[in-house]
Structures are given as C-alpha cells and as structure tokens.
Computed example of a mutant assay.
Amino acid sequence: MKVTQNKNLYQITWAPYIFPINCYVWEDKNELFVIDMGVKSFVSEIEKISRKLKKPVSKLLLTHAHADHVSGVPLFHQKFPKTEIGISQRDLRLIRGDFTLLPTESQNKIRGSFSKNIIHIDFTFKNKDILSTLEVIESSGHTPGSVSFFDTSSKTLIAGDAFQTRGGIAVSGTLKIFFPFPSLATWNSKVALTSAKKLRKLNPTLLAVGHDILLSDPIEQIEKAIRAAERK
C-alpha cells in the first residue's frame, strides 16, 4: 500500500507496481471525504489518516459502480457506520444489479466486473451537485453513470476511470496494451471522449484517476489523450 499526499488530497494505492487501484481522501476544513473504495485494505489506511488529522470521515463518494471501485464498501460501512455513502443516480441501478439501458442511452452492452456483495448506499447525487467544495461532474462513458469530482478553488479533478495514467495517459475506451483493463471495461468510448473534452474545459491543475499516478499540470497530456481517442 502506498500513500501519496498533494496538499489536501491523499492518494492511497493498492498494488502500485502490479495492478494499481486508487482511493482518495479529500481533506476539508472540518471533515474528510473518501472517493472510491475498491479493496478492503483501504479501510485501515483511512482510519490512520483520520486519526492523524483528527477529522471525521463524513462521506464516501463513488465515481462509478465497477467492482474495483466499490468492493471495499462492506468493510468500510462496518468500520464507519455513520459515514454516508453515495453514488450517481444512474449507477445506483448497476449497484443493484439492473443492467438495462435507458431508451435515451446508447444500447452498447455494459461491460466490466461488478461486485456480487451487497453495496450499502445512503444517497445519490447528480450532475452539478455540490458536496462541500467538490462539484459533481457527469462523466459518462466508462459506465452510463460515471462521475468526476472537481474542486474549483484548487482545480483538482478526481476523475475515476474517465482517464487512466497507468500504461500512459488515455481516455476511457482507448486501449493501452500494458494496462488494457479500463478500456476493456468501458461501456461507450464515444461518450467517454465527449466527457473527456468536457473535463478538459475545466482546466484542472491536478488530475487524480482510478489507476496509477497523480498528474500535475495535466492539460498537455489530457489533450494528447483526447487526440489519440479522436483518431481511434
């Protein structure tokens, strides 16, 4: 397990050199927000950070419903029973095992792995909702209800699997041979590209993704990834 701090953002990485899966802790003035909970091992690290900072964990926010972002939720809920857990209104259906597509959505088959365990959810959110300093940004494509979280003050973008940095930066759906899994689990690469362009317009100064390292001043690399996705 590896913990990397960038100002008030803590990145916790499981298996950083083999199959990196990230969880994030966002430090607010009086509380902590956790983003994604892919493996049980994250829970003990979050407990350490909470004790060190002497701040409670008020919410767990999930970027999307895939197993590598939610499988640690049962243990997290056991250890933090008062912490509210939220996911987008759309991906709540996936969490509940409903994979039917809406009439307004592309009818591509939903892909990727989903947890067979019960994933406790307390609330849902939608595009443009504000959770403390974090704004919910709809980023569909990887799943129909994927979201990112953006802090307008620091311009930190926590993008889930809208982008990957493992194997080279890429928009969700663009195959990277040394780490192909986000691409293989993407529902609709064209929708993902549209979301990537929207995220680019936010002009983030820090990009945090579901798999691999943080990127500072990421605009040039994001644009490179978008051009590659356009060519695809």
Rank of each mutant, 00 (worst) to 15 (best):
T83H: 05
E84I: 09
I85M: 08
I87N: 02
Q89K: 13
R93D: 13
R93A: 10
L94F: 10
D98F: 08
E105G: 08
E105S: 12
S106M: 11
S106I: 13
Q107V: 09
K109E: 15
R111E: 04
F114K: 09
F114Q: 06
S115H: 05
K116H: 09
K116M: 10
I119A: 02
H120E: 08
T124E: 04
N127Q: 06
N127S: 05
N127G: 03
K128A: 09
D129A: 07
D129V: 07
I130H: 04
S132W: 08
L134G: 01
S139D: 09
S140E: 09
T143K: 01
P144Q: 06
S146G: 10
S146H: 11
V147T: 05
V147H: 04
F149H: 06
D151N: 13
S153H: 10
S154P: 08
T156Y: 15
T156C: 10
T156R: 02
L157M: 10
L157H: 01
A159Q: 07
G160R: 02
G160H: 05
D161C: 04
Q164K: 12
T165C: 13
R166P: 04
G167L: 15
G167W: 14
G168E: 09
A170I: 04
V171S: 01
K176Y: 08
I177E: 15
F178S: 11
P182N: 06
P182Y: 01
P182T: 03
S183N: 10
N188H: 14
V191R: 02
L193G: 01
